[in-house]
Design a binder for these strands. Structure first.
Lengths: 107, 107
DNA sequence: TTGACAAATCAATTTTGATTGATATGTTGC
DNA sequence: GCAACATATCAATCAAAATTGATTTGTCAA
């Protein structure tokens, strides 16, 4: 932690652009359904097209939005690419909503 | 709590429509700035137009999006309408991100 | 090396969301 | 009642995001 924050200044606002990007990624029901599918662990795109009955290019588009927001990661394994939940984006959002929540103590 | 959930079935997925609406409301930097302003307590629209240097109809539009999502409430006081943060929307989002967070225990 | 499969990318279109300026509604004090 | 003010709503325009089908890239196995 920088010296300037050691028990002195209030927490800085998190980057609004990052928060907006994460929340935008969660603002679509198809993407929420993808994340719901990934709750059980990583899945390849072909499993997702099956589970969500969506066109492959459509899912690919939504996965990219989620990935750019830091909400999923991918891992290549031969011909397959496995997607899983990335907690970085979750933390970005959590930090923001905790920050504005009036029930939480302000520092 | 319904009998069917008493220490038996897993938590139901929260309504995806509500989650999507809340996150959509947080996906715009103007709206994030509004919430940042409301962190200190309620404000009337005229204060927000001043602080954010935005047209009144523009803020009114964004406040409606936030209100419909359950992220702000309003309270009329004579000619003024005071807006403040509504924790209901925050809880909707928190519930969802906790649900998909792999670091959290699944029930 | 070719054929089959998994996934990404692209271009065209459609849908959805934001901005703007003008107008309408509701409240107060004269 | 009327003027002044705070805010909401409306219609028109503009911008961004989603959908679709076609094409491309990458990987494997025969």
């Amino acid at each position: 932690m920088p010296e300037s924050r050691r028990a002195r200044s209030p927490k800085p606002a998190p980057d609004a652009g990052a928060v907006a990007r994460c929340c935008h990624a969660l603002s679509d029901e198809t993407r929420l359904a993808i994340l719901e599918c990934l709750r059980g662990g990583e899945e390849c795109v072909c499993n997702l097209t099956g589970a969500l009955e969506s066109a492959q290019s459509r899912l690919s588009f939504h996965l990219k939005v989620l990935k750019d927001a830091g909400l999923v990661r991918d891992r290549r394994d031969g011909r397959w690419i496995h997607y899983s939940i990335d907690t970085e984006g979750l933390d970005t959002i959590r930090e923001f909503i905790d920050r504005i929540d009036p029930r939480r103590r302000k520092p």
